[in-house]
Write a protein that binds this DNA or RNA. Structure first.
Length: 992
RNA sequence: GCGGGGGUGCCCGAGCUGGUCAAAGGGGACAGGCUUAGGACCUGUUGGCACAGGCCUACCAGGGUUCGAAUCCCUGCUCCCGCACCA
């Protein structure tokens, strides 16, 4: 024990040292980040108002603040911030708002658990969500929970430097928002999109409330199954076994009852049913007015007969210990032909002489004839038996029995056909027959529907067992309505979906969605305006709230009583009305604000919300707004992983965003999150790689210092001394910069943050390294080379700009440190033809084409590479290196080969001879053969002046290969006949 | 079961409108340099065989289309995600 404490002590020291060492490398500290955040706020940089500029309106799903923000959330909210900042620099007027979705039930449960000092919850909120002790007890109030965490979210979002227009912040319980929701629901009701009906839910009788999966102590993710209750008559009463497979009613041989459990007689609508005592709780929540009449002794029923409701055959009742009194109604009908469990139970009973004697069943059991119902290829008339034999199942306790049951259920459902002797349904697929039989039996009052959990128990957090309750008089949104679906599809079709592969997912969900229960009993929220006992279900109040953002700041100024339906009709549809209570000028201002910002350009959300939130969002926009205000695009996010494992607050596997910011700084966190994966992919937070990201950021600052060092005086980005460039390597660097700017811009347009950073940070850094390497020898002879200073300053200036959306604090700091004017966030995004766009630079026609510039550098590098390769395998150091360039006829032939486009030597030869490119046919053939394969590996961009290129880089090459080089256009000196190896873009080499 | 998306080198992960792909980038490993030292930085190597700039084998498996396939088509295997009344 002591030993461990000592070890921990050392470990702590190591950790402390660790962070000290790293923090030494920080160039942008938290203080600097806070400084810039304050400056942005003071300058109201992100307050967006209606003006003449082109607008971009984007929203990201507002959070449900029931816990602290973790790095997964950090990614979700950084993506829109990066895009917003990018678009602003492109001169757009961008609206990026934020609100809090506080309606719903979870906080109610959390609050009561905190009140009850539930240890798990207390630990979660204290350790994972890091709520201070003095605040913890206040979380007994659900309103306080959302208040506490929404202000926490607000703080962390500010610390991340998000460019949010906070004037439009709201909570979904704000009175004016509730007015907005009431208006929407009334509107939908008027349109006939709301109906009343019944609906089964997971329910806790103790809490007297429906419960969601996250409110469960046990049984998370357990399905609710729909079962058919079949009524088997016995002495004027009914036994009501429940089943998944009503079609097997034709194969019933007997019923099973558990003689060791309590059964009761209940009265239901004039009928008397015999059910297990334990099933009453569940059934009574589903069937109205179910009254207990008395107890029934199951032992007395054993051996008696029941009547099959469909075939009218008589079946005996047998005892069985496997009958679970909690499942269904506590009795089971036996289909040994198609249910392995029934088959084996029957076998077991046959061998159980004690039991047979006790109930005097010997003859009855022996007379049971197993019946066939379903015909299945590759199976006998008794498929249950086949499977039991195949899996070698010995008795009822065998765990493989479940496997056999599931297997047969699946196979018969998907491939089974009703056997020829089954009346009315012979030849039908099982799946179809099942539905038909169920429907017919219910309409003939031979059966009814009940619901049960697929597994027991399902336990509420309060400790009580849950049941399934039919909620009656529920209100539904009619997503099943075909016209509504059609309109929704139309809306989807005109939207941009990123990534586009997700589109088919939406199409699927729109088709699949059925009516959605939009009312609930508990939680925070808005009451249904026409039926106040109901609250509006929290997904249904979050469908078109983006429209609310556009006017939220104005609504804060208004008197809530004055906000009525007429107001919203005016704002959203410009409909005039006598009921308006607000003066014209104010209404018109708000109206124009809405019509400026709408439609929504981009909606961002997580991919697990496709089937509900996002689909509802389309449904409601399609229903309520005219086409010109339909949403324009959606971006769907992936999930977050932590060191390869799924992030989950409730499992404690999270890193809080606030901790990450404290440790690494907002820019590092932003940079890592944006570089780790594209938004729609799952990203993985790996500590090691986060640290790597930090180093890379530091190097940006070092680069700036390097330039100043070369220049020998302070950098002034706002006033870069222009120099006309003549060296190809300088042009190459500028050209690479342009390529990176273009690729970054394209990537950002499509929300590809990872690719954008790949281009703007990593690849550009590589280019700069390469450039520095290429000009190293020039700096040695002239440290203050003006062209180099010009090139590097130009690169730095653009580099800072294109990184600003990602690491805004660092970029502001760099910008202001090196003479930039104002906020870099307010500067314009760089164009992608810097230098070349200026006509005075463009005298040398040859270097207009970026391809040529790239190719030149490739030739230089390729030549160096080849020389080094050959040198490596020579015995001795060469004294001279001769470089031979391809002569004109080779270029001509190369062009022909490119035109032909494939390695078809015959055709290339034919054309070459036809055009008479060269007199020596043998040489042509030889060369054609040589290049025919090479061709496909090289990009042909036309003839370029290789001599000029190599001469320009001659000193660099000589330094690299440490030997004098001689460039030859012909083979006047060619002792080893190497010149013939020269190919366009790939000179021949000879060393001596 | 229904629906969607994948399987790439030691690991993560790009590429996938066919040729510039032995395959970007990162991580790891190895070697070297810089250094008092380094968890900092730089360079090189990281499929095999060659050794005058080359060849072979490779992108789950099998088949096909093509002059040419990681990329297109078919088949199989396999992994992941969603399936609801609720954030």
């Amino acid at each position: 024990m002591k030993y461990n404490i000592i070890l921990m002590y050392f470990y702590n020291i190591l950790i402390i040292n660790h962070s000290i060492i790293y923090s030494c490398g920080v160039l942008v500290t938290r203080e600097i980040e806070k400084k810039w955040q304050k400056k942005w706020e003071e300058a109201k940089l992100f307050q967006s108002n209606h003006d003449e500029k082109e607008k971009v309106f984007l929203t990201v799903a507002y959070p449900y603040p029931s816990g602290a923000m973790h790095i997964g959330h950090g990614r979700t909210y950084t993506v829109p911030d990066v895009y917003a900042r990018f678009k602003r620099m492109q001169g757009k007027n961008v609206l990026f708002p934020m609100g809090w979705h506080v309606t719903g039930a979870p906080v109610i449960g959390i609050a009561s658990r905190i009140k009850n000092k539930d240890p798990w919850t207390m630990e979660l909120y204290e350790k994972v969500h890091q709520v201070p002790k003095e605040e913890l007890s206040k979380l007994e109030d659900p309103e306080y929970i959302v208040k506490y965490f929404s202000s926490e979210y607000h703080q962390v979002m500010s610390d991340m430097g998000y460019s949010i227009d906070w004037r439009r912040e709201f909570k979904t319980t704000d009175p004016s928002y509730q007015k907005f929701i009431e208006w929407q629901l009334r509107k939908l009701k008027e349109m006939g999109m709301v109906r009343k009906g019944n609906h089964p839910v997971k329910y806790c009788p103790n809490c007297d409330n429906p419960v969601g999966d996250h409110d469960l102590l046990e049984g998370e993710g357990v399905d609710v199954n729909e079962l058919t209750l079949l009524k088997f008559e016995i002495d004027g009463k009914y036994l009501t076994p429940a089943t998944f497979r009503p079609e097997t009613i034709y194969g019933v041989t007997n019923l099973w009852l558990n003689p060791e459990v309590k059964y009761i007689e209940v009265e239901n609508n004039g009928e008397n049913w015999i059910i297990s005592g334990k099933s009453f709780n569940n059934l009574s929540n589903q069937i109205k007015d179910l009254n207990i009449v008395g107890e029934i002794d199951p032992k007395e029923l054993i051996g008696k007969e029941v009547k099959n409701p469909v075939t009218n055959k008589k079946h005996p009742i047998f005892p069985a210990s496997f009958v679970d009194p909690e499942y269904g109604s506590g009795s089971v009908f036996s289909v040994p032909g198609h249910a392995p469990a029934d088959y084996i139970a029957l076998q077991d009973l046959k061998n159980n002489h004690d039991l047979l004697n006790k109930y005097n069943l010997k003859d009855t059991v022996a007379n049971i004839q197993i019946l066939n119902v379903v015909t299945l290829k590759k199976y006998s008339q008794i498929p249950a038996k086949d499977l039991i034999e195949k899996l070698a199942i010995k008795n009822q306790e065998d765990p493989k029995l479940v496997e056999a049951t599931n297997e047969l259920y699946k196979v018969e459902h998907s491939k089974g056909v009703m056997s020829p002797h089954i009346p009315d349904y012979a030849g039908d697929n099982v799946a179809i027959a099942r539905e038909k039989i169920k429907k017919n039996m219910i309409s003939d009052s031979l059966a009814s529907i009940m619901y049960d959990f697929a597994e027991h128990p399902v336990v509420c957090r309060c400790g009580n067992r849950c049941v399934i309750k039919i909620m009656d008089n529920q209100w539904f949104l009619k997503y099943s309505d075909e016209d509504w679906k059609e309109k929704t599809r139309e809306c989807l079709a005109q939207e941009n979906i990123i990534p586009n592969e997700i589109r088919s997912n939406f199409e699927y969900y729109i088709g699949w969605l059925e009516d959605w229960a939009c009312s609930r009993r508990i939680g925070l929220g808005t009451h249904l305006p026409w039926d106040k006992q109901w609250l509006i279900e929290p997904l249904s109040d979050s469908t078109i709230y983006m429209a609310y953002y556009s006017i939220a700041n104005y609504l804060k100024e208004l008197n809530v009583q004055d906000i009525n339906d007429a107001f919203f009709e005016k704002i959203f549809f410009n409909k005039d009305s006598d009921d308006l209570k607000i003066t014209d000028d104010i209404v018109n201002t708000i109206q124009s604000e809405f019509s400026y910002w709408y439609p929504l350009d981009w909606r961002l959300s997580a991919k697990d919300l496709i089937g509900n939130h996002l689909s509802f969002h389309i449904f409601h926009h399609a229903a309520i707004f005219p086409k010109e205000n339909w949403p324009q695009g959606m971006v769907v996010f992936g999930m977050g992983l932590l060191e390869g494992n799924k992030m989950s607050s409730s499992k404690g596997n999270v890193i809080l965003l606030s901790d990450a910011i404290e440790k690494y700084g907002a820019d590092v966190v932003r940079l890592f999150l944006m570089a780790a994966a594209e938004p729609w992919q799952d990203f993985d937070w790996r500590e090691k790689e986060v640290i790597g990201t930090k180093r890379r950021l530091d190097r940006l600052f070092e680069f700036a210092k390097t330039i100043e060092d070369i220049k020998g005086s302070p950098l002034d980005l706002n006033n870069i001394k222009k120099v006309k460039l003549s060296r190809k390597i300088d042009l190459w660097m500028i050209n690479q910069l342009n390529i990176r700017i273009k690729d970054t811009t394209d990537a950002l347009e499509g929300f590809q943050t990872r690719k954008a950073l790949q281009d703007s940070l990593f690849l550009l850094k590589k280019d700069i390294d390469h450039y520095m390497y290429r000009v190293k020898h020039l700096l040695e002879s002239n440290k203050r080379d003006e062209a180099i200073v010009f090139v590097l300053s130009t690169v730095l200036k653009s580099w800072i700009k294109i990184l600003t959306p990602f690491i805004p604090h660092s970029c502001e700091e760099l910008w202001s440190s090196y003479g930039g004017d104002g906020f870099v966030a307010k500067t314009l995004w760089p164009i992608d033809n810097i230098y070349f766009a200026d006509e005075s630079n463009v005298s040398d026609d040859e270097f207009l084409a970026s391809e040529t510039i790239e190719k030149s550098e490739e030739i230089v590098q390729g030549t160096v590479h080849d020389i080094l390769q050959i040198k490596k395998i020579l015995d001795k150091e060469p004294e001279k290196i001769h470089i031979y360039l391809a002569n004109d006829w080779k270029w001509d032939l190369y062009k022909i080969a490119d035109d032909v486009g494939k390695p078809d030597i015959g055709q290339i030869m034919g054309r070459a001879i036809g055009q008479n490119v060269h007199s020596d046919k043998k040489e042509i053939a030889e060369f054609a053969k040589k290049i025919s394969r090479e061709m496909t590996k090289t990009r042909y961009i036309g003839k370029i002046d290789e001599q000029d290129i190599l001469n320009d880089a001659k000193d660099f090459i000589e330094e690299e290969v440490n030997t004098k080089i001689f460039i030859h256009k012909d083979n006047s000196y060619d002792p080893e006949d190497k010149a013939k190896n020269a190919i366009p873009y790939k000179p021949a080499i000879y060393m001596e």
